[in-house]
Design a protein around this nucleic acid. Structure first.
Lengths: 144, 144
DNA sequence: ACTTTTTAATTCATATGTGTAACTTCTCTG
DNA sequence: CAGAGAAGTTACACATATGAATTAAAAAGT
C-alpha cells in the first residue's frame, strides 16, 4: 500500500524548484546585510575556516574553483575578505575575513538563524534529522 | 534530550551546498541529452503544461519572468520549443514543445529517473515522504 | 638533473539567475 | 473614445554557476 505521492514530478525538479524559491527568499532577507546568498554562504564558511585556500573553499561551499575565483574577487572588492599569498606554496592563496567581513558575518548568522527557524517550523526534530541526512547524502553524491 | 546535530552550519547553507553539488551532478548526467539542468526542468514542466505562458512557466519552474524569457529564448534557438502568439490577448505568448523538444524530454525523464533513484537510495519511503514534504514547504515559503 | 605529471588559481565563453525599468497591449473609468 | 492603470513580455546591468584552456609552481618518474 504505497502512499499516494505525486511521482509525476522528478525529485531533482522538486529540489531545484525549492532551491530557487528559497534562494530568492534568502536574498530578500539578506538585503539588510548587504550580501547575496552566495556571499553569505562563503562568509559562514570562512568563519569556521579562516585562511582557507580557494580550492578548499570551493569544496566547502559546494561550487567549483572557477566560481570561487569570481566569488572571492567580488567579496574582495566589497572589502569582506582579503587574499594573501601562501608562503609554503607559490601557487596557493589564502582567503581571510576582514573586520567588515566579520561584522557582516554576524549579521548574516542572525538573519539566517531566523530564516532557518521559519523553514524548520512545522517539522519535528526527527523529521529535520531526516532532512539533514538527505541533504548530506545529496552533497556527497559522487560525480561519477 | 535533544539529539546531537551539527548546529554550527546553517540549514540554508547546507541546502545551498547540496543544491550546488546536485546540480553539478545532474548537469553531467544530462550531457547525453544535450541540455542543462534548467532546460531539463523546463522540458519536464512543459510536458505537463504544453502551451503555458511564460509567466505560468516561471511560477511552475520556480524562477522569475525575466529568467524565463532568457531560458525560453535559448530553448527556442535550440529548437526545443517555439513561441506562439496568444490570440485572445495580444500581450501574451504561449510556449510549445517541438518534436525535438518532446524527444529530448523523453531522454531527460529517463536520465532523471535514474538520477532520482540514486538520490533516494538508502532512504525509506517514509523518510522520502518527509523530504518531499520539506521541499514543498520550502517552495511555498512566502516571500514576506 | 630533466622531463612529465599534477595541482592551484585564473581567465574565457556561455548559461542561468536576480531586480528594475521599459514597452506593448489590454481593461477600466470618465 | 481618451487617458489612467494593470498585466505580460522583454531589455539591461549584474551576480553566480559551469567546463575548458592557460599559467605557474610543486611533485614524481626516469
Amino acid at each position: 500500500m504505497p502512499i499516494a505521492r505525486p511521482t509525476h514530478r522528478r525529485l531533482f525538479a522538486v529540489f531545484d524548484h525549492a532551491h530557487g524559491r528559497l534562494s530568492r527568499c534568502a536574498g530578500k532577507v539578506l538585503v539588510s546585510a548587504g550580501v547575496k546568498p552566495a556571499q553569505a554562504t562563503a562568509l559562514i564558511y570562512l568563519g569556521y575556516h579562516d585562511g582557507a585556500q580557494p580550492s578548499e573553499m570551493a569544496n566547502g561551499v559546494g561550487i567549483n574553483n572557477a566560481a570561487t575565483t569570481g566569488l572571492v574577487s567580488r567579496m574582495e572588492k566589497a572589502e569582506l575578505v582579503i587574499r594573501k599569498k601562501l608562503l609554503s606554496d607559490g601557487r596557493g592563496k589564502t582567503v581571510h575575513l576582514t573586520a567588515k567581513g566579520l561584522r557582516t558575518r554576524e549579521k548574516v548568522m542572525d538573519i539566517l538563524r531566523d530564516f532557518d527557524d521559519k523553514l524548520a517550523k512545522n517539522f519535528t526534530e526527527s523529521e529535520m534529522d531526516t532532512v539533514y541526512k538527505f541533504l548530506r547524502a545529496a552533497s556527497e553524491l559522487k560525480e561519477k
